[in-house]
């Protein structure tokens, strides 16, 4: 006899005899689907005991687990909401900053443009002034060169004339003329009456 058969027999010993047929093939249930009533009752009690034990001893920890889980999920949801709000705030700030940057860019561009125009205008004025000054200087220079050339020419003419005068005078003075000149001076000085005075008296 197998162990199963032995167990079936032991259980059968405890159970009422009418609900089992014991033959040479072992214990055979009276109904092919439902077990006997006492077995259902016994198993129901056992199940209830198990459920109670689970409820009694595992319930709090399960409850706590779910409670913690709920809190965690809630926290994560709150954090998500907060992160979303922060992200939206950041996005808003970035959008604002972008707006500011754009405004600032426009302002800088505007200032740079104004400054460039100012520099350009100033440069034009300066260039115009310099051009006028250069023109005036060139005109003065030309006038000066013309004047200098004229002066040099006059000086040169005067030099040549002076040299020519000396040469002509020296060449034209012979002994008789020298004597005549000396006699003229003597005559003029002799004709002067009374003491002459001061520098540069000329006969």
């Amino acid at each position: 006899m197998s162990a199963v058969s032995t167990l079936q027999l032991a259980i059968a010993g405890l159970a009422p005899q009418v609900e089992f047929d014991v033959d040479d093939r072992g214990v055979t249930a009276a109904h092919p689907i439902f077990p006997p009533i006492w077995e259902i009752a016994l198993q129901t009690v056992a199940f209830a005991a198990i459920v109670y034990a689970i409820y009694k001893f595992g319930g709090p920890s399960i409850k706590k687990y779910y409670s913690d889980r709920t809190e965690r999920i809630q926290r994560e949801m709150d954090e998500g909401v907060a992160a979303k709000a922060a992200a939206e705030s950041e996005a808003l700030r970035i959008r604002t900053s972008l707006g500011d940057i754009e405004t600032e860019r426009q302002q800088i561009l505007s200032e740079a443009r104004a400054q460039a125009e100012g520099v350009l205008a100033e440069g034009r004025i300066r260039l115009d002034d310099e051009a006028v000054e250069l023109e005036a200087r060139a005109t003065d220079e030309i006038a000066s060169i013309v004047g200098r050339s004229g002066d040099e020419l006059r000086a040169q003419i005067t030099r040549h004339t002076n040299a020519s005068i000396d040469q002509v005078v020296v060449q034209s003075l012979d002994d008789s003329l020298h004597q005549q000149l000396i006699e003229d001076v003597i005559a003029r000085v002799g004709a002067a009456t009374g003491p002459a005075s001061g520098n540069g008296a000329s006969a």
Partner: peptide, 11 residues
Amino acid sequence: IVIDGSVRATV
């Protein structure tokens, strides 16, 4: 006193 009756002065 300088009495200048020279041709140089005239020149």
